[in-house]
Simulated assay, not measured.
Amino acid sequence: MNTKAKISQAWQTVQIARHPDRPQFLDYVSEIFTEFDVLHGDRLFGDDGALVGGLARFDGQPVVVIGQQKGRTTRERLQHNFGMCNPEGYRKSQRLFDIAERFNLPVLTFIDTMGAYPGVGAEERGQAEAIAKNLAILSGLKVPVIATVIGEGGSGGALAIGVADRVIMLSHSIYSVISPEGCASILWKTAEKAAQASAALSLTAPRLHALGIVESIIEEGEGAHLDPQTTMLRLKDELKKALDELTDMDADARCEARYQRLMKFGSANLENAS
């Protein structure tokens, strides 16, 4: 594939990942899980609508479910802060991680965010510390952890709930250290080069699978918004398969495998896969 075609394909994927009719976290919850009981607040500052989480049943098994919700109407988007979490959202997830560890419940996370909220208040309340603590906690959880990128996976805001034993991506989702517009603004001083940046960032599911960053890709045809039911059923099957494999592992062996998974990410591996 020539450079122009790669740029076009990557940018098209970005547009589909951001499609306004694309299924969001709570749509997946209603289809894949039952008895979803939402937990609110971080016991320090307040509740963050961008991150929704709680206890649920997956195929009859109790689990902890956490995800970023963007909202569709103007009212919903404001309520959920467009899916951009404040530190209280990540601290809410820390409460849920603690519950999962205490009661030996698998953790399933769903990523869909442009990134963590960059506002002054968020920084004052410890945004970076909250994200860093999430990374540390997820790295050491004894229970199985599965992360799924269902739309946008942007920067530390996504990674804060993305450290896992298995990472799954929908075929038209994206996962990157920065948004294409942000990357273009840094490299070329203009967001108009976002399409070119999207190709350079290697943010598509096939590319990240080739690099070993994600383990599985869920095929969604021309977009999950066109046939959400089929996509959700495929994801449910993949989640069940991954959870069965991880549950059969010894907890210490699972943690060691998670550590080794993270340690294999590096320049040598990326160079070999390029």
Rank of each mutant, 00 (worst) to 15 (best):
residue 144 P to E: 01
residue 85 C to V: 09
residue 4 K to W: 02
residue 196 Q to A: 13
residue 118 P to V: 00
residue 254 R to S: 02
residue 31 E to Q: 09
residue 54 G to I: 15
residue 80 H to P: 15
residue 265 F to A: 14
residue 241 K to S: 14
residue 40 H to K: 11
residue 217 I to M: 05
residue 200 A to P: 01
residue 74 T to L: 13
residue 64 V to N: 07
residue 226 L to C: 00
residue 48 D to F: 00
residue 135 L to V: 04
residue 64 V to L: 12
residue 128 A to W: 12
residue 187 L to A: 05
residue 238 E to Y: 01
residue 244 D to I: 09
residue 70 K to W: 10
residue 78 L to Q: 09
residue 191 A to G: 06
residue 238 E to G: 00
residue 173 S to A: 10
residue 124 E to S: 10
residue 144 P to I: 14
residue 147 A to H: 02
residue 135 L to Y: 10
residue 216 S to E: 03
residue 70 K to I: 05
residue 84 M to F: 05
residue 168 I to Y: 03
residue 38 V to C: 07
residue 39 L to T: 09
residue 192 E to L: 02
residue 91 R to G: 07
residue 227 D to R: 15
residue 108 L to R: 11
residue 121 G to I: 07
residue 188 W to A: 13
residue 143 V to S: 05
residue 212 G to N: 03
residue 55 L to V: 04
residue 109 T to W: 03
residue 124 E to Y: 01
residue 254 R to P: 13
residue 223 G to Y: 14
residue 261 R to D: 12
residue 143 V to E: 03
residue 54 G to Y: 09
residue 94 Q to E: 10
residue 233 L to V: 02
residue 106 P to W: 00
residue 55 L to D: 03
residue 103 F to A: 05
residue 40 H to Q: 08
residue 33 F to E: 10
residue 45 F to G: 12
residue 21 D to L: 06
residue 136 A to L: 13
residue 42 D to M: 12
residue 12 Q to A: 15
residue 218 I to Q: 08
residue 8 S to K: 14
residue 195 A to P: 00
residue 234 R to T: 01
residue 37 D to V: 10
residue 258 R to A: 10
residue 117 Y to S: 05
residue 234 R to H: 05
residue 261 R to C: 03
residue 120 V to L: 05
residue 114 M to N: 06
residue 99 I to G: 02
residue 58 F to Y: 02
residue 243 L to Y: 00
residue 192 E to S: 11
residue 119 G to F: 01
residue 62 P to H: 14
residue 172 H to N: 06
residue 121 G to Y: 00
residue 25 F to S: 10
residue 11 W to R: 09
residue 159 L to N: 14
residue 70 K to R: 08
residue 269 N to R: 10
residue 17 A to Y: 14
residue 273 A to Q: 04
residue 166 R to L: 09
residue 37 D to I: 15
residue 44 L to R: 08
residue 200 A to Y: 03
residue 179 S to H: 12
residue 39 L to G: 00
residue 74 T to Y: 12
residue 159 L to A: 13
residue 10 A to F: 13
residue 219 E to D: 14
residue 46 G to F: 00
residue 181 E to Q: 04
residue 268 A to Y: 02
residue 174 I to R: 08
residue 157 G to M: 12
residue 267 S to R: 15
residue 128 A to P: 09
residue 3 T to W: 01
residue 106 P to D: 09
residue 230 T to D: 07
residue 97 F to R: 14
residue 88 E to G: 15
residue 83 G to W: 11
residue 223 G to C: 03
residue 37 D to E: 11
residue 270 L to M: 14
residue 180 P to H: 10
residue 122 A to I: 13
residue 218 I to P: 14
residue 226 L to V: 08
residue 129 E to L: 12
residue 230 T to N: 05
residue 130 A to N: 11
residue 258 R to I: 06
residue 9 Q to K: 11
residue 96 L to P: 00
residue 25 F to G: 04
residue 220 E to G: 06
